[in-house]
């Protein structure tokens, strides 16, 4: 990832649904941005990663056992509509 760029470009989390195996590390590391659905698969927030969470987000990307998580500039193309993180976290 391009370091030092975070103040100009918004970064979004993105999950490759084919690669992801629902280990859930990402949700443990980043509960502010990733919830798990009832089947254990991550639901990522569609808001940009706040600067304060960028380091943690990079760590989540690096530690995803399936390399399914990534940070990308701009809007994520795979984003659920109207996901309420609170309700899907029960």
């Amino acid at each position: 990832m391009d370091d030092g760029d975070e103040t100009v470009t918004e970064q979004h989390l993105r999950v490759d649904p084919v690669a992801c195996d629902a280990f859930g590390y990402c949700a443990e590391l980043l509960p502010e941005l990733v919830a798990l659905d009832e089947w254990g698969y991550p639901v990522v927030s569609d808001r940009a990663v706040p600067p304060a969470l960028l380091d943690l987000a990079r760590r989540a990307v690096a530690e995803c056992p399936r390399r399914a998580l990534s940070l990308a500039a701009g809007k994520p193309s795979v984003t659920p509509k109207r996901v309420r993180l609170a309700s899907s976290r029960r």
Binding site: V15, P17, S87, S88
Partner: peptide, 12 residues
């Protein structure tokens, strides 16, 4: 309804 809300946009 909750399921219908959480599934879309998350498949390849």
């Amino acid at each position: 309804r909750r399921r219908l809300e959480v599934i879309p946009g998350r498949g390849a």
